[in-house]
Design a protein around this nucleic acid. Structure first.
Length: 574
RNA sequence: CGGGUAGUAGCGCAGGGGCUAGCGCGUCUGGUUCGGGACCAGAAGGUCGGUGGUUCAAUUCCACUCUGCCCGACCA
């Protein structure tokens, strides 16, 4: 490709809002262009990188025996009503009516559509297992897109869906994806870790997320450096210690103005782990069948030295969504903000008690009376509720598996795999007949990789103060050719030689000064730069420089094609 | 959806109730340069996000609205 014809231009300054290096360079180098919030065009350079990533993904999916299909972006609302998600998903899903006034929606994922395909195709156990995948546009009306391609509203996702007759089959294809995903990221050059995760709106039980660890990440990952335990903080377990002792008599004490655990500990001269703190939320419970909604007050109780992990609480409370409660709502539930506890709360309140609280005795808790707390409250005797792990894992907490301290870090989710089970097949009547003629629901799994997000993460990982330096496997071109000599013929000749040898060349044929060409080459970051200058050309030589290295090598022009091929082959092997 | 911030040339920004609305970069023309974002000379390019109001006069003041970005809520 000739730079003079390239449908993009480089920018000398970072456009407003480019707050991470990777995003800034994607814009400045002309890989992408923003159309609206969370909506981007891929320009030729960006699209070439995306295609390279897509090819790697396709190769690895094909190797699993997956068959590529393409499902529609526009879905009828009906199939989403069958699974209930037409109602349970909030405004993140865009819905509209077609001309006949039927409910339609833009697919934010394709479980429904794919399960519909499955029920049309699968009748007998003889057809199973099956595995399909697609690279298709998703639309998710995220309330807050950010960081360039990291979090967008419209994006391309590789999503695959497995159909199996039993759990063993699902586990096999799940494991195959687990391994294939690592191969995909490795081939792209992105370091990732797989972590246990929450299944969220997808349903199902077992799931993993692939995380690119980076300070720009929005997820918090808990890891154990000693034994390798890793989990999203939303579900991360940790070892708790309990204060077991003889039950003592509950006692009302005056604690004026002690609205926080910190104040309370000061007033009573106790440690925070001797207290129980209440967090008030309002959960929305949606009836999957008709979409009707009900709000209920949720009280989460954790020990004073810990924080509530809202995701765990929402799961334990079985709410579809959750928000902090307003003061009036807490009072209406029979409790007093600042001095609250489930003791004496109104019926209908969902109480979830962290196991560290349930297993400890004689904790200080709110008396639901302004200015008062109770000493020696005990779960089971003084209040009841569901017991679950709802506290948030933190740096330094104890690993549940090996007992060593845990660490936390930030990560970007670049892929996920879910064992869906029969959540969708049962809801949508996707059944098969086994050898005995018995009808059984197909066991499903779904597996996603955000293609654009993957590119964005690669750009965060591979850049320096001059621009991008993507690995050869995903860079838009292999060689960036710069000719600095007057005689245009030489550059043209070399360009054609390399191109005809099947090498992907970006040729800077513009009438620009050397400085401009070098600066743009650094910005775009093609892995191999070949320069033909007057001095070296006079000796029949050219210069080769790798984007990731500083050194420059002089080589003979006579063997430029085989030498370049050898260099590229060497880079591919690395 | 709450809080903040911004919208003026392709990009980054300045300005300001009335005058020809500027600057840097980029673009175009001519010339000189020609290995790390060259120099000189000339030029093009704007209904100052939109609507309504105040005013003799609005890009500037006011109201509303749309859009982008940041923090939070939210999120695969």
């Amino acid at each position: 490709m000739r730079m003079s014809k390239l449908f993009s231009k480089t920018l000398r300054e970072a456009p407003n809002g480019a707050d991470t290096k990777g995003y800034e360079y994607l814009l400045r180098a002309g890989y992408i262009d923003q159309l609206a919030s969370g909506i981007f065009s891929l320009l030729p350079l960006g699209f070439r990188s995306i295609r390279k990533i897509s090819t790697i993904v396709r190769e690895e999916m094909d190797a699993l025996g997956a068959q590529e299909i393409l499902m529609p972006v526009v879905n009828p609302g009906d199939i989403w009503k069958e699974t209930g998600r037409f109602y349970s998903i909030d405004r993140e899903m865009t819905r509209f009516k077609d001309r006949r006034d039927s409910d339609m929606c833009l697919a934010m994922t394709h479980e429904e559509c794919c399960t519909d395909l499955g029920r049309n195709v699968i009748d007998s156990y003889k057809r199973l297992p099956l595995l399909v995948y697609q690279l298709q546009t998703k639309w998710r009306d995220d309330p807050r897109p950010r960081a360039g391609l990291i979090r967008v509203r419209e994006f391309t996702m590789k999503d695959s869906y497995s159909f199996d007759r039993d759990q063993a089959g699902l586990e096999k294809v799940y494991k195959a994806h687990y391994d294939a995903y690592f191969r995909i990221y490795k081939r792209c050059g992105l370091p990732v870790v797989a972590v246990g995760s929450d299944s969220g709106m997808m349903g199902g039980k077992v799931s993993h997320e692939y995380m690119y660890l980076s300070p720009i990440g929005e997820d918090t990952i808990i890891t154990c450096p000693s034994c390798g335990y890793t989990a999203n903080r939303q579900v991360a377990r940790f070892k708790k210690t309990y204060n077991k002792e003889e039950l003592k008599e509950k006692e009302l004490v005056s604690t004026p103005n002690a609205k926080t655990i910190e104040d309370l500990c000061k007033v009573l001269s106790i440690e925070s782990e001797r207290t129980a703190k209440a967090v008030f939320m309002v959960g929305t419970y949606i009836n999957d069948k008709d979409g009707s909604e009900e709000e209920r007050l949720i009280v989460g109780i954790v020990r004073g030295d810990m924080d509530v992990e809202e995701n765990k609480l929402q799961n334990a409370a079985r709410a579809n969504s959750m928000r902090p409660a307003h003061e009036e709502e807490i009072i209406a539930g029979g409790m007093v903000p600042g001095f609250g506890s489930p003791i004496g709360c109104k019926e209908g309140t969902v109480v979830v008690v962290d196991d560290a609280v349930a297993e400890s005795n004689n904790l200080v808790a709110g008396a639901n009376k302004e200015g008062y707390h109770y000493l020696n409250t005990n779960y089971g005797r003084d209040y009841s509720g569901t017991v679950a792990d709802i506290s948030s894992a933190k740096d330094g907490y104890i690993c549940p598996d090996c007992g060593q301290p845990l660490r936390s870090s930030k990560g970007v989710e670049v892929g996920n795999i879910f064992q869906l089970g029969t959540r969708y097949s049962e809801a949508m009547n996707c059944y098969y007949q086994d050898e005995n003629g018995e009808r059984k629901p197909v066991i499903m799994g779904s597996y996603g990789i955000g293609i654009g997000r993957l590119l964005a993460c690669l750009c965060e990982e591979y850049n320096d103060e001059k621009g991008l330096k993507l690995p050869l496997a995903v860079a838009p071109y292999q060689v960036h050719l710069i000719s600095l000599i007057k005689d245009a013929e030489v550059g043209e000749r070399v360009y054609n030689e390399l191109k005809n040898a099947g090498i992907e060349v970006l040729y800077d044929d513009r009438k620009e000064t050397a400085g401009v060409k070098f600066a743009d080459a650094d910005l775009i970051g093609v892995p191999v730069r070949i320069t033909i200058g007057a001095r070296s050309f006079a000796e029949g030589k050219y210069e080769v420089k790798l984007r990731k290295e500083d050194s420059v090598n002089l080589c003979s022009l006579d063997s430029i094609v085989p030498d370049t091929q050898a260099l590229l082959a060497k880079l591919i092997r690395e």
